[in-house]
Computed example of a mutant assay.
Amino acid sequence: MTDSQPGTEAFTIRSSRVSAARKLVRRRARDKERKFLAEGPQAIREALAAGAVRELFYTERVLSRHADLVREAPRSALVTEEALAALAETVTPQGMVAVCDYLECLLPPDPRLVVVLDRISDPGNAGTILRAADAAGADLVVFGSDSVDPYNGKCVRSSAGSLFHLPVMRGADTGEALSLFDAQVLAAAADGEDVFALRDSGDLAAPTVWLFGSEPHGLDDDTAGLAHRKVGVPIWGGAESLNLGVAAGVCLYTTAAEQRKPS
Rank of each mutant, 00 (worst) to 15 (best):
R22N: 10
S145E: 13
T208I: 05
V209F: 06
D68L: 09
L84W: 11
R30M: 05
E9N: 04
V97G: 01
T174K: 00
P41A: 08
L37P: 03
R260Y: 15
A85W: 05
E240T: 06
R119Y: 07
G238N: 09
A20D: 13
V97W: 15
E215L: 04
V141H: 05
M169C: 08
A256N: 11
V231T: 00
L252Y: 08
A227Q: 09
A85H: 10
R229V: 00
G51S: 12
I13E: 12
S158M: 06
W236I: 05
P74T: 08
G161R: 04
Q259K: 11
R119K: 09
V231M: 12
G249D: 01
G124N: 13
A133F: 11
L106P: 02
P150N: 00
V195C: 10
T59Q: 06
F181N: 03
R17Y: 05
T90Y: 15
A50L: 06
L78R: 09
L242E: 09
G124Q: 13
P109A: 11
R112M: 08
R54K: 15
L178I: 04
A47Q: 09
A256W: 12
S201E: 13
A73Y: 14
L87D: 14
P262S: 14
P111W: 10
E176A: 10
D68V: 03
R75L: 13
G171M: 01
D203I: 01
E104R: 07
A227V: 01
R260P: 08
P6N: 03
Y102C: 01
L24T: 01
S214G: 09
L163T: 00
V62K: 14
K32S: 04
D149P: 04
L63N: 03
R260A: 15
S241C: 08
P262G: 10
G95I: 00
D182S: 14
G245N: 03
D31K: 02
R26E: 13
F181R: 09
N243C: 02
E33N: 11
G171W: 08
R131N: 00
T254R: 10
E176S: 07
D118A: 07
A73L: 07
L107M: 01
L252Q: 10
K32C: 04
D139G: 01
M96E: 13
V209A: 10
V185T: 06
V53G: 12
A189S: 11
G192C: 06
R26P: 03
D200G: 12
R71V: 09
S16D: 02
K261F: 14
H165F: 02
N243K: 03
R229A: 02
I235E: 15
Y58I: 01
G144Y: 11
T2I: 06
P109W: 06
G40H: 07
A177I: 02
A52T: 05
